[in-house]
C-alpha cells in the first residue's frame, strides 16, 4: 500500500524529509514571523512584505551562526594547541 494512503494525519508522524529535515526550519521561521509581525507592526498595510523581510533576515542569521559554528569546529579548534 502507498504509505501516504496509510498515514493518519495528526495522530501519526508525517515524517521529516530524511536528510533534508532542516528544510522544515523555513516554514517554522515564517510562522514565527507572521505571529511576531502581527503584534509588532503598527501599520498592517505592508504586513506580508514585513513577514518576508523578517523571515529572510532570521534565516540568514541562523545560517550565519551555523557557518560560524562550522568554521569554529573544523578550523579553529584543530589549530588550538593541547598542553
Amino acid at each position: 500500500m502507498n504509505p501516504i494512503l496509510a498515514w493518519i494525519p495528526i495522530l501519526q508522524p508525517g515524517g521529516s524529509l530524511g536528510n533534508y529535515w532542516w528544510l522544515l526550519l523555513f516554514p517554522l521561521v515564517v510562522g514565527i514571523s507572521i505571529a511576531y509581525r502581527a503584534t509588532h507592526q503598527s501599520d498592517l498595510a505592508g504586513f506580508w512584505r514585513g513577514v518576508l523581510t523578517f523571515s529572510v533576515k532570521s534565516t540568514v542569521a541562523m545560517g550565519s551562526l551555523g557557518a560560524a559554528m562550522y568554521l569554529f569546529v573544523y578550523l579553529v579548534i584543530p589549530m588550538l594547541r593541547v598542553g
Binding site: 494525519p9 495528526i10 495522530l11 501519526q12 508522524p13 508525517g14 515524517g15 521529516s16 522544515l24 516554514p27 517554522l28 510562522g31 514565527i32 514571523s33 507572521i34 505571529a35 511576531y36 509581525r37 502581527a38 503584534t39 498592517l44 504586513f47
Partner: peptide
C-alpha cells in the same frame, strides 16, 4: 493574522511529528 501564525505552527508540528 496572529492566530493563523500560531495555529499554523502548532498544527504544522502535529502534522510533522504527530500528537506524540
Amino acid at each position: 493574522l496572529a492566530g493563523v501564525g500560531i495555529l499554523g505552527l502548532f498544527l504544522g508540528g502535529l502534522l510533522i511529528g504527530g500528537v506524540d
